[in-house]
Each structure stands twice: as C-alpha cells, then as structure tokens.
Amino acid sequence: MKDDFLNRTFRHWSMWPCLAFLLVLSVYPVLQLVPMALSTIKITGEGTFWTYSPRRNLDLLLGDAVLRDAVVNTLVFVVLSVAIEMVLGFFAALFIACMPRGRNFARTVMILPILLPAVAIGSMWKLMFNYDFGLFNQMVGVIGLDPINWLGDTRWALLSVVIVDVWHWTPFVFLILFASIETLPQDVLEAGRVDGATAWQMISLIILPLLGPALAVAALFRAIVAFKAFDQVYLLTSGGPGTSTELLSLHLNRVFFEQNQLGYGAMLSLTIIAVIVATLAVGKWSASQIERKRMGQ
C-alpha cells in the first residue's frame, strides 16, 4: 500500500509545510521589527541608512501627545466590540442551531457582512450615519426624535464605530460557535433535558463549559483583529472628532506610513503587540478566575 511510506514518516513531515511558510514569510518581518524599533531609518535611492537611536524613539513614545488617548480608546473599542460580538454571536448560533428548519438559510444570511470589502463597509456606513440624509437619522425622525450626531459628537462617535464593528464581525463569532454547537454530544444534552434542567441551566452548566475552547478561540482571534481595526474607522471618522475615536492602528498608520517614520513606527508596532499580549493575559486570567469560582460552587 502506498500509504505505508506516508504512515512511517508522517510524524516527521506533518509539521514541515507550516514551518516552511512561517520560516520564510513570518520570521524575518517579525524579528526585523526589533532592530527597527531601536533605530532611525532613512531609505534613499543610494541605499538604506540605519542609525542606532533607542533613546530617540523611546522619547518619542513617551512624549507622544495622542498615544494615551489612543491606548484608552483602543481598549474601550476592543473590549466593547468583542464582548457584544461574543454575546450576540453565541445566542444567534444557539438559537439558529435549535431551529428545526431553515438552519442553512439562516447561516448563509448571517455571514453576509464578512463578505463585503472593508472599504465598502466604511463608505456605506458613513452614509448611513450621515446627519442630514442617513438611514439612522431618517429612522430616528420617524419615531419623532431629534437627529443624532452619530459621528460628529464626541460622546457618540466611538459607540457608532463599535456598532459598525459589531455588525461586521458578529458573523465571525457566529460561524465558529455554530460549528461547535452542531458537534456538541447529543447524549449529554439529552441527559440534561431528561434531568429537567431549565434552559438557563442547560446553557450555563452544559453548553457553555462544552464550548469553552471554541469560545476562547473566537474571543482570542476577534480581540487580535479588533486591536488592528483600521479601514472602517479610517473611513468613518479618521480618528476624530478630536481624539474621540483615535485608535492605535490609526496612529501607527499615520506615523509609519504617512510620516514615513519607520523606526518609531516599529516601536509603536511593538507597543501594540505588548498591549495585545497584556490584554489577552488579563482576559485569560479572569477567565480562569471565573472557572475556579464555578468549580467551587
């Protein structure tokens, strides 16, 4: 049998393809960020000139006037968006999985937003939020309320940006959780029902614990992508008005790309990674605390 050879060697080569991709395409750009972050870099037609200047980049970071607002806004944006998306995605997945008919249709419809390109989502939602002509203020007008300054009011702007993110990315959470819910062991669920568990007990005592790993992966990847959210916010508000929707990703784009400050830009990239890692660590720690409390009950 031709599988014989594959069988004998499988444990040796199964990792090779992914290691090859990571080695060739990820190691260099990632590791390069560190020396970049410690330097001032000038690219010219004659060549690229590096000057070792860690102090300068650090000073820039500490003296950055918008960095603090950007970190705070980013954390608020990520926590709010991901929390809402997880809750909505979970319940949508749960209820659709419980529907006797129409599951495939519902699933297809639910993923529409992630099929649209980000530039279209940003431009179209900007129209929807428009003060004078937008869909939302038309609806608000029908109810008889005063128009809302969705993007132009510093109190509303970040929330409006979160709404767009929730619309765009709830389908992501939904898809991952829906697949997991469909593979939940039927016998366990059946047993729970026979024992007379209420719907809430079913969810909190049986379904949520079984979904643990899927929930973790969904939250993990949603959080990482949310930290990098760029296109839509850029098109909706460019980080304004003032600094009300300024995010780390927008600031990075300005420094690294618009101002061509490669060294300080790399420093900012590393800062973003550090903030993500710290947030994930806190998230993991609180999840384990909750778990421990529950076990103790």
């Binding site: 431009s123 900007k126 428009n130 003060y131 004078d132 002509f133 300054n149 969705w150 993007l151 132009g152 009011d153 510093t154 702007a157 909706l236 508000t237 460019s238 304004g240 008005p241 003032g242």
Partner: peptide, 21 residues
Amino acid sequence: APPNVGVIGQGDVIQLLATGR
C-alpha cells in the same frame, strides 16, 4: 454648516452641494 462639522469630509461637502442643501 451642519452640526457634524467635526467629521465633514469631501463626500459630505459634495453631498450637501449636489443635493441642493
């Protein structure tokens, strides 16, 4: 100008002029 001046971009300026507002 409209109350959302702080986020008015090129699209909004053209929109207001082109619709006659």
